[in-house]
Amino acid sequence: MNHKPTAVLFGGTGFIGRHLANRLTARGWRLIIPTRRWQNARNLLLLPTAEVVELKERTLPALTALVRGADLVVNLVGILHSRPGAPFGPDFAQAHVEWPKRLATACRDAGVSRFIHISANGASPTAPSEYLRSKAAGEAAIRTVLDAAGSENPTQWTILRPSVVFGPGDSFLNLFARLARWAPVLPIGKADAKLQPVYVGDVASVMLTALETPESIGQSYPLGGPRVYTLKALVDYAARLSGHPRPVIALPDRLAFLQARLMALLPNPPLTPDNLRSLEVPNVVDGSPLPFGLTPTALEAIAPEYLAHDTYRAHYAEWRRRHTG
C-alpha cells in the first residue's frame, strides 16, 4: 500500500487554506484540518482525503500530539484587527507571535519534517502598524525555536510573505465590490498606497513548489502579482467589475483616520486605524514577484469571473465554464 503524506493545515478553513487543501488533495495528500468549530469546515468534508478535527485545546501537549506523524504543517492563522498595545496589541500577540511559536515548538518536539508559515509582506519590527510588527515578531519566534536546536532540529521551515491576496472568496476586492452596491461614492484613505496583489492559486503553487525545492529550507519569500496598483485603482476596478461604478474619493489623512476610528467601532470592522498605518508601507515585491521561476497570474485574468457575478460578462463566463469543459 502506498503511503499518503500527511499535512496538518492550521487555518485550513480560511480563504487561502481552502485553496491549498484542494491542491494538496489533488496531489494525493492526506489532510488533517483542525478547527474550533466543526461547522466552519463543512465544505472541506467533501474532499476525499480530508479529516476535520475539532481543536478543543491549544496547549503545547495537545498540539504536539495532533501533529505527531505529520509530514507537513502549515500555519495559515492570522487576524487583521486587535486591541491596541505596544509594540502590538494582545490579540496580535496571541495570534501572530505566541501561536506560531507554540506550533513551531510542537512541530520540533513531534519530529515534523516541514513547517510552512504564512506571514505578510512588509513585516518588520520597525513597521508603522501593529499588524506588521506582530508578523515580524512571529517570524522571529519561529526562527528562534526551529534554529536553536541546530543540526538536531528535525523541522525545516519556510516563511512566505504574500502581498494582499485575491481570488474567489477573498475579503479584499469583494469588500469594495459589496460597498459599491450601496454607497453612492467610495471615500478611501491612503488612496495612493501601492499594492501588488497575488492570486491565491499562486500562493498555493509556491507552497507546493517549496516542498520540492531544498533551497527553500530556512528561507523567507515575498509573494506578489505581475503588476503594482494604487489602492484607488483597485477600488475603482472592483466597483466597475461588480456592475456598480462609483466615484472613488481620496481622503486626506485626518479624515481617513477619523473614518477608520468610526469603522473600528463596528462588530467586524472593515477598516481600523492600524489597517491604514499598514498602507503607509508599499506592499510591493522587490525583484521577481514569485520565487522558483513561477509566473504570477494577472488580476485581470481572474477577478472578472468572481466579482462580476451580477453582470452579463459573469453569466457568460459561467456558461463557458459549464459548456466548454
Rank of each mutant, 00 (worst) to 15 (best):
I249F: 00
R320M: 07
S163Y: 02
P84R: 10
I118S: 09
A301L: 12
L76S: 09
L24S: 07
S220W: 03
D286Q: 15
P291F: 02
V198M: 04
L251H: 09
L146D: 01
N40Q: 10
L307M: 06
I159G: 11
L24C: 07
M1S: 14
S113M: 12
L299I: 11
L266N: 07
T295Q: 07
L173V: 14
I32V: 15
P214Y: 01
P282T: 06
A137C: 08
P5T: 10
R133P: 14
D310G: 08
F257W: 05
Y199L: 06
T295G: 06
V198N: 04
E215S: 13
T297K: 04
T295C: 05
R18D: 00
R133T: 13
G138H: 03
G85Q: 07
S124D: 10
V77T: 11
Q156C: 06
L294H: 09
A7M: 04
T158S: 05
F15S: 08
P245K: 04
E152L: 14
R36F: 02
T311H: 03
V165F: 01
A26C: 12
L262A: 12
P48E: 00
R277H: 07
W182Y: 09
V235S: 05
L47K: 14
L146V: 08
A314Y: 10
T126Q: 13
E54C: 13
R27G: 12
D71G: 12
T35Y: 00
R58K: 14
L255G: 13
N275Y: 02
A233H: 08
T155A: 03
T155H: 03
Y316E: 10
D253R: 11
A250G: 14
E300D: 13
P282N: 04
D202Y: 08
P296R: 05
L251M: 11
F88G: 12
P154H: 02
K135V: 10
P87T: 05
S205Q: 13
F292L: 05
R37I: 13
L234Y: 02
A193K: 14
P247R: 03
R322K: 15
P184K: 04
P90I: 07
G293C: 08
P270L: 03
R23C: 14
A317Q: 15
P100R: 06
E212F: 07
L72I: 11
L9N: 06
D91N: 10
A256R: 13
G287N: 04
V285D: 00
L307V: 14
Q94A: 09
T324F: 03
A70R: 10
L175S: 11
L24A: 05
P128C: 06
P222R: 05
D192R: 15
V248S: 03
E54G: 12
Y199H: 12
A308Y: 03
F172I: 11
E318W: 13
L266W: 01
R83V: 15
S124G: 08
P100W: 01
P87V: 06
W319A: 12
V74H: 03
P273S: 06
L44D: 11
L255E: 02
W29P: 15
L279V: 13
I16P: 14
L66P: 15
H19V: 15
G17F: 01
L195F: 06
F10E: 01
A120W: 00
L211D: 03
V112D: 02
A239D: 03
I33N: 09
A180E: 01
R114S: 08
L266M: 10
G243L: 04
Y199G: 09
K4I: 11
I188V: 15
N43S: 14
